[in-house]
Each structure stands twice: as C-alpha cells, then as structure tokens.
C-alpha cells in the first residue's frame, strides 16, 4: 500500500509544525523521516496515522483519500515512542487486544485469536514470555511486544515513532537489523521517525530529511549522503568542517587530508597550514582537532588508525591540509 501526502499544513497555536509537505511513499518501502526535534517529523507521522488532523492537505492510501477515516478505522499499525503497552495486561493480552476489538462479525474465534497471538509472539521471539506483564520486560522486549501488537491487526501500513529512541546503544543496533529483516519478511509499507542519522541511513530504503516543517531532501541514503541538497542536510548527516573563503565550503572530516610537509603543485593550490591541537582516539578511527594558522578557526579531521600510525602525528605539530571532496551551496546564508 502506497502512502501519499499532499500539501499538508499543520499549526499548533502560532507554531507552524508542517508547512506544505508533499511526499509519496511506495508500496513495500521502508521510509525514514529524519530531522532534528521540532522539525515536524512526528507530527507528519501522526497525521498519516490519523492521530492528528491536518489543517490543510490530504493523505491518500493507494490513491484513496483517508482524511475522513477515524484513526480506529484506518488500519494503521502504530508503534509509540514509549511503546504505550497496556500495563494491566499480559504480553499475550496486549497482542490480542486489536483482534478482540474488531466488530463481532469480523472477530476471529477465541482459539484462532490465541493461535495468531502465539504465531506473532513466535515471530518476535517472545513466545516464552507470553504471560509476563509489561513491567517485567526489558526495553527491547517491550519494543518487540509493541511491534507484535501493531502487526496483529494486519495493518496496511506500519508507522513507528522513534522506535529505538528509548533503548541503549547495543540493543538499539541489534533491534535495528532485526526490524529491517522483519520488514523484508512481512513486506509491509513502513515509515519510521528518527533523529539519528546513522539509524535512518542504515535502515531505510529512502530518507526524507526534514527541517522546520519542510522536507529538505528526499532520496536513498546514498543519494542524500553523497549529494546533499543543502547545507542543512550536509550538516545534519554528520560532522562537517566549514571553510570560510569567498563562499562557504563544507568538508567532511574524513575528506580532510593531512600531510607533514608542504605539498608541491596541490590540485586546488590549497596548502592550509595548521597546528594539531588534540588527538582523540575514537576506537576504529582517530579524530584530530586542528587549529588553522591562517584563519582563526578549528577543523576536524578523521583518519584511520593505520593512516595515523603512518603519519606519526604529534600534538602541537605543524601540518598542511588539503581537501578531497567539498560541498558548496547557493543561497547559503544561515549558519
């Protein structure tokens, strides 16, 4: 089922959360809405679900306008940021809730409900915890219960609000891969909201990068990373250095090359003199903080450990920088 939003506008009081957003999400796609807090990504997700009503614009599922459909009839699976599990129900009862809530003509028989709940719990690897209460589960387990509960009603689309936000780093990474696999197995059109660019780039088929209620760029993770459409996108997708010249030039830390001596005949003629201010070991990479000697600013460069060993850099050493890949944007006035 494809999702299409057209020209959606939403204001809260004087705050413009969404400003004329249009977006098409294809059938079977796993789509990420990525942006800083306040960019309107969660509001957009809630409007798609029907939990929020847009001031203007339309939401279509498979070319069918669903604006008039109440949230309980839109057949969306929604996973809340804090899971919103029913605290007074066991895991199995939580998952069964949606099936039991169906009108009696469509409601499966009791044995069938039980069957389907167990199948779902098998899928999320929680079959042995069916009778536990939510308070007795870990964060990752709760997340999987919430997913099973949302999938139990066989939704047409699956919407996830910051699905990994409340988990610690290790669980988060495991669950991320697991969700990707689940999505590929079930094949349901899914949208998730995140402020974590790694998460969006790793998990999604396509990413919408949002800022101030607008979509700055929409594309595959590769496209948005390689060809960012604006300074905002570039800066949001990772650390970036700003070179002040005639125009603002952005360079990612891994694209800053360091050499101990002046390089003759450099491509851009850029031999920026700098002094090493700090060397930070970040596990697989080494982050080097550099103070420019020709301009009052600092830069960051990222080297692999091997490169760092080869160069044998020392703190306080004078080096020359050149740039491998740079980004310049038109109309780039905001800082």
């Amino acid at each position: 089922m494809s999702i299409e939003v057209q020209n959606i506008t939403k204001t809260f009081g004087t705050f413009r959360a969404l400003d004329g957003i249009s977006l098409k999400i294809e059938t079977g796609e796993l789509h990420a809405l990525l942006g800083p807090s306040g960019s309107g990504k969660t509001t957009l997700l809630r409007i798609i679900a029907g939990l929020e009503i847009a001031d203007q614009g339309q939401v279509r599922f498979n070319d069918e306008i669903v604006d008039a459909e109440h949230v309980s009839r839109r057949k969306v699976g929604f996973v809340f940021q804090h899971y919103a599990l029913f605290r007074h129900m066991s895991v199995a009862e939580n998952v069964a809730f949606g099936l039991k809530a169906r009108p009696w003509r469509l409601r499966p028989r009791r044995a069938e409900i039980k069957d389907r709940v167990m199948k779902l719990l098998d899928m999320v690897q929680l079959a042995n915890l069916a009778h536990r209460m939510p308070s007795q589960l870990s964060g990752g387990q709760r997340q999987r219960v919430a997913l099973a509960r949302a999938l139990a009603v066989e939704p047409k689309v699956l919407l996830l609000d910051e699905p990994f936000g409340a988990l610690d780093a290790k669980v988060r990474r495991e669950l991320r891969r697991w969700v990707r696999k689940l999505h590929d197995d079930v094949g349901i059109t899914s949208v998730f909201v995140t402020h974590d660019q790694d998460e969006a780039l790793e998990l999604a088929d396509r990413v919408s990068i949002m800022n101030k209620g607008k979509i700055e760029q929409l594309g595959t993770p590769e496209e948005v990373y390689e060809n960012p459409a604006s300074a905002f996108v570039l800066r949001f997708l990772g650390n970036v250095n700003l070179f002040h010249g005639r125009e603002k030039t952005y360079v990612r830390p891994q694209d800053v090359l360091i050499s101990a001596n002046l390089v003759e005949g450099d491509v851009d003629g850029e031999n920026v003199p700098a002094e090493i201010e700090h060397i930070g070991f970040g596990g697989s990479v080494v982050n080097i903080l550099l103070k420019r000697l020709d301009h009052p600013s600092t830069l960051e460069a990222t080297l692999s450990r091997e490169q760092h060993k080869e160069l044998g850099l020392q703190r306080g050493q004078r080096v020359y920088l050149s740039v491998r890949d740079q980004h310049v944007f038109e109309n780039d006035y905001d800082i």
Binding site: A49, L51, H70, V71, S72, R73, R74, K75, V76, G77, F78, F80, H82, A84, L85, F86, R87, F97, G98, A101, R102, R149, A150, A152, V153
Partner: peptide, 16 residues
C-alpha cells in the same frame, strides 16, 4: 493519553 491512543490505532471504539 498514550495508551488510549494505542487502543484507538488498534481499532478500539470509545467504549472499549
């Protein structure tokens, strides 16, 4: 109201 919202997305009506 998060749990109530969850109930709504799962297709529950107001009384349920």
């Amino acid at each position: 109201t998060e749990q109530e919202q969850a109930a709504l997305t799962l297709g529950a009506g107001g009384w349920r």
